[in-house]
Design a protein around this nucleic acid. Structure first.
Length: 958
RNA sequence: GGGCGGGUAGCUCAGCUGGGAGAGCAUCGGCCUUACAAGCCGAGGGUCGCAGGUUCGAGCCCUGUUCCGCCCACCA
């Protein structure tokens, strides 16, 4: 028993445990009719991505729920996969191409670029999966899906065509958000708004027939004036009434434009009341242009430079150059009448941070209204429940305001639009994929045109997919639409497509709808709402019952943690230990910092983030950095330290006490006669109930805190310490019950902790299960991951034992308090004698069983307990709710110290008593408060005044 | 501009439907007591952002206000 146990070293055990789970197929799930299925579909990380703390949190939460479900005996599937992440992935490969070969995608061409991206995917696509394994995720990896797999692509095509044939997908020329860097359209949801220190430029447009008069307009983007086709004023605006219908000189262009009246856009109260109209490059102006049938001029090329539609002097200029030039030219012509500073929000590309230009082009759209209705219904009817519930509002608000969704992207990596055109035929005629149905398409070209619109040839819904080669009408060659679909178009199908839809698969029948979606709040609109739409539309049910929205991981200053910002961490390095070099961009200038991490282990990292996981609440990770001599830093994260210390505690008590002490156990029959054992079982049963309750309600942090205290305080600090004399004694039955209780408690506790700390619990469980078998205790299976969740019923309930042992515990703390507060008693000095007086017969009887334990616990030599004890002279005193406790200390007790200690206690108790008395003296309280509350307060007053009396008596006796 | 979340111990956070202010870390004091110094025992520390209101009673409910964060928004 005295042999040193091996120290707890997570990095040594975790890899091995994980490979055992994989080898034994513990994560596997196949549909089993008749069984309750539990399923989570992973929010697919980007193929190019590397694991960050947000992933660690997100996936740890899912793993907890999955492991909990599995232990509760459900047929549990966590379905993993990765997302092709169109723009993101293509950007990464394009950047590499530029850095290594100095080429752009246009240099190498579509086919070659796609080849390179696939190669990249094969090479690095598996990385994030491996990282998830490090965290301990128990996904069914054999089912790993990729959004561009054949099956998933088929789901995408099917949905596209069904929506197309219903008229919910259409093509049109519209003003879209254009990223000039990526040269593609983006949806509204892919923009990030950043505040820019801009200006208002006030420009004067003279009247054609009276240059002394003019209209002053203001703009934040002066270069767009080159595309103006009108100036609008409000019809009721007296200032401009006589100008409506007359023409203005559009400076710098040689064009003239009309003054028009519009009821909606101009606001007479704002600025000059006159608004320049650039229908080709501003959403409001575009709407106005449509209303008034104004010409639309596209002044930009796809890469954001000024196009041939502007005067030659400006052609080919980039936006900023153009802006400078236009302003300078206006100044020269005396038409810039004012400039003022104006900070405002400007849309940027969420990937490359380029400024987004509203741009007129041909794109594919989803008509959202009917789909929105479906999603709104699912939210309103409670078919989808949000945790925290407040997030439902965000979901509904987005549904209320979302415009039609631009789904085409002018990039190459993604699902290509399954539509072919015949360049030779009449562009107003379309032919579908079977080659025999002719349908008309609407030509939605704007007045200024766009790209040439061809009639699409669309494969028929649900017919075998074809890649038509020739036009069924003229037999000429066809070309496929060059665009690909927005990544979210395939993401929205993820829960359907990964389960085999559109086929009616056994998976779909068994696992759909899934149980819960775990995600962060920033993609509620982007992803969650759209998945609900697709689920409702194509399966008649939302794809998940619950949506658990977790918080964001923040750094010690409250900033969002991200690697690129230089304040994030690679979770793998925190788990395995190592070093990393980060560039901290929170400071100006950025600072490069080399950091060293100790190996916390996955269990500690998981515990660290999960113990703070409350639905919706952000998690601020405090980090301490200690500088080394060479300028690098040792990083410590207190939250993870706690996890590791807890792991160590669990390890130590298992290998240091429970297992060695359980050797030779032959399990006794029947319930234990010992109060202490029954108390432990009682606490375990209550613990199981509360942990289960918290997990059921997604309160993982609360669950952590319950098992933490149950394990550390109730089990380690109290039960194990109290039971030691019985373990060391020579009464076989007393020993056997203690051994058995310890084993049972540990078995139960490991299981309660397993969802949060899977590795260490699995490792210890192996040995605990062996010990149980040797002792003849009921079999619990070989692996904790597949062993059943503990049943509170099997431990019963014993409030009486709980009450008595709790009273003894209070007495023990009272004695330790005396010891701690009296500097004259050395901590390791044995107290000669304890005297306890109590009227509680159960308590007196209980001491028979707990005497030895208590004496050891408080390090005392002897103990007397009875209702008749009196205070001996020269002793330290304490009172608990149920007893007086005296510690005779001949010559040891420092009278002044003891007087002060008692006085402090009396003062504290007196304060509480006063408050209760005040309450009870209040007539309103007696009359209006519920009876049980009043009774409770009365009892409390009794208790407090008894306590204070007994404390006074002790003080007087000094 | 609109919406949401949050201000509780030095730090990070719990406090469920209103009824005795809690945890972890940090701090201070004492202990290498036969699992664990990554430990054990003890202690100190809070006008629960501010101001009103409802109530017998408010950290919790209502109103206003301030600060922080996030999301949404077409502000020429």
């Amino acid at each position: 028993m005295t042999s040193k146990t091996e120290p707890y070293d997570p990095s040594r055990i975790e890899r091995e445990i994980y490979s055992i789970w994989e080898r034994e197929g513990c994560f596997r799930s196949v549909p089993a009719p008749g069984r309750r299925h539990y399923c989570i579909v992973i929010p697919p990380p980007n193929v190019t991505g590397a694991l960050h703390m947000g992933h660690a949190l997100n996936n740890s939460i899912q793993d907890v729920l999955i492991r909990y479900g599995r232990m509760r005996g459900m047929n549990t599937l966590w379905l993993p996969g990765v997302d092709h992440a169109g723009v993101a992935t293509q950007s990464v490969v394009e950047r590499t191409l530029w850095e290594t070969e100095g080429k752009t995608r246009y240099d190498v061409g579509r086919e070659r670029l796609l080849e390179m991206i696939w190669q990249w995917k094969e090479r690095f696509g598996g990385r994030i999966v491996e990282q998830l394994k490090t965290v301990g995720c128990s996904c069914d990896w054999e089912r790993t899906r990729f959004t561009m797999d054949e099956g998933l692509s088929r789901a995408v095509r099917t949905v596209f065509l069904r929506l197309f044939h219903e008229g919910l997908v259409y093509r049109g020329t519209r003003l879209v958000n254009w990223c000039p860097n990526h040269r593609t359209a983006l949806s509204n949801d892919e923009l990030v708004y950043k505040e820019i220190q801009g200006h208002y430029w006030h420009i004067r447009y003279p009247l054609v027939d009276d240059p002394s008069r003019g209209v002053v307009v203001a703009t934040t983007r002066p270069e767009t004036m080159l595309g103006d086709t009108a100036v609008a004023v409000h019809p009721s605006d007296e200032r401009y009434r006589d100008l409506v219908g007359r023409r203005l000189v559009l400076p710098l262009t040689g064009r003239t434009i009309p003054v028009v009246a519009d009821e909606i856009l101009p606001d007479p109260a704002k600025g000059t009341g006159a608004v320049k109209i650039t229908p080709g490059h501003d959403p409001n102006d575009y709407a106005c242009g449509l209303r008034l049938c104004l010409p639309m001029i596209n002044i930009l090329t796809e890469d954001g430079k000024l196009a041939g539609s502007v005067p030659p002097a400006y052609q080919g200029l980039a936006r900023d150059e153009a802006r400078e030039r236009v302003v300078a030219d206006l100044v020269r012509e005396g038409l810039l009448v004012g400039t003022e500073d104006h900070p405002h929000e400007v849309a940027h590309c969420y990937r490359c941070s380029s400024v987004i230009e509203p741009f007129l082009s041909d794109q594919w759209f989803v008509h959202m209204e009917p789909l929105v209705e479906l999603a709104r219904g699912a939210g309103a009817d409670g078919l989808v429940r949000f945790y925290p519930p407040g997030r439902l509002k965000q979901y509904m608000d987005w549904l209320d305001t979302t415009p039609d969704w631009c789904i085409s992207r002018q990039i190459w990596w993604g699902h290509r639009i399954p539509v072919w055109y015949c360049p030779a035929c009449d562009p107003s005629v379309g032919v579908d994929g079977r080659g025999d149905i002719v349908r008309l398409t609407e030509d939605r070209r704007g007045p200024e045109g766009g790209r040439k619109v061809f009639a699409p040839i669309v494969p028929e819904v649900d017919a075998p997919f074809i890649d038509p080669a020739t036009c069924p009408v003229c037999r000429g060659p066809l070309i496929q639409d060059p665009d690909v679909l927005d990544t979210w178009f395939s993401s929205q199908l993820w829960p359907l497509s990964t389960l085999g839809w559109p086929d009616r698969t056994a998976d779909l029948a068994a696992y759909y709808p899934t149980d819960v979606l775990v995600t962060a709040r920033d993609i509620i609109a982007l992803w969650v709402a759209r998945m609900v739409m697709m689920g409702m539309k194509f399966q008649g049910a939302p794809p998940f019952r619950d949506v658990y929205i977790h918080g964001t991981i923040l750094d010690e200053r409250g900033d969002i943690m991200s690697k690129s910002r230089g304040n994030g961490f690679d979770p793998v390095k925190l788990i395995q230990g190592g070093e990393d070099t980060l560039t901290d961009r929170r400071t100006d200038p950025p600072v490069e910092r080399r950091e060293h991490y100790k190996a916390y282990g996955a269990d500690a990292v998981r515990y660290g983030v999960l113990s703070m996981a409350t639905a919706g609440q952000d998690i601020r990770l405090v980090v301490t950095r200690n500088e080394r001599e060479d300028g690098s830093f040792d990083v410590e994260i207190p939250r993870f330290e706690e996890g590791k210390r807890f792991g160590n505690k669990v390890w130590q008590v298992t290998y240091g006490v429970v297992l060695p002490q359980a050797e030779g156990l032959e399990s006794p029959d029947g319930p234990s006669p010992y109060l202490l054992d029954r108390y432990m079982y009682h606490r375990l049963a209550r613990g199981i109930e509360t942990v289960s309750g918290h997990l059921d309600g997604y309160s993982i942090g609360d669950a952590c805190s319950v098992f933490y205290h149950l394990f550390w305080d109730d089990f380690c600090s109290w039960y194990v310490e109290m039971v030691k004399p019985r373990l060391w004694g020579d009464e076989p039955l007393a020993r056997a019950h203690a051994q058995k209780t310890m084993l049972e408690a540990l078995t139960c506790l490991l299981r309660l902790m397993h969802p949060v700390m899977p590795f260490i619990t699995e490792r210890l469980f192996t040995d605990v299960a062996d010990a149980r078998r040797a002792a003849g205790l009921p079999d619990v299976g070989r692996r904790i991951i597949t062993s059943p969740w503990p049943d509170p019923g099997s431990f019963g309930s014993d409030p009486q034992a709980d009450r008595i042992v709790t009273a003894v515990r209070a007495i023990a703390s009272a004695v330790n308090n005396i010891r701690g507060e009296n500097p004259s008693i050395r901590e390791n000095q044995k107290l000669p004698r304890l005297i306890v007086r109590t009227d509680d017969a159960g308590l007196v009887a209980g001491f028979d069983q707990m005497r030895d334990g208590l004496l050891r616990f408080v390090n005392a030599a002897s103990l007397v307990v009875s209702p008749d004890e009196t205070r001996p002279g020269s002793s330290a005193a304490a009172v608990t709710a149920d007893a007086d406790v005296w510690v005779p200390l001949e010559g040891l007790v420092d009278v002044e110290q003891e007087r002060a200690r008692l006085a402090k206690s009396i003062a504290a108790t007196g304060k509480k008593l006063e408050a209760v008395e005040r309450k009870l003296a209040n007539q309103g309280f007696i009359e209006k408060a519920p009876l049980d509350i009043v009774e409770k307060e009365r009892a409390r007053m009794q208790e407090l005044s008894s306590t204070i009396e007994r404390l006074r008596a002790s003080l007087d006796a000094l």
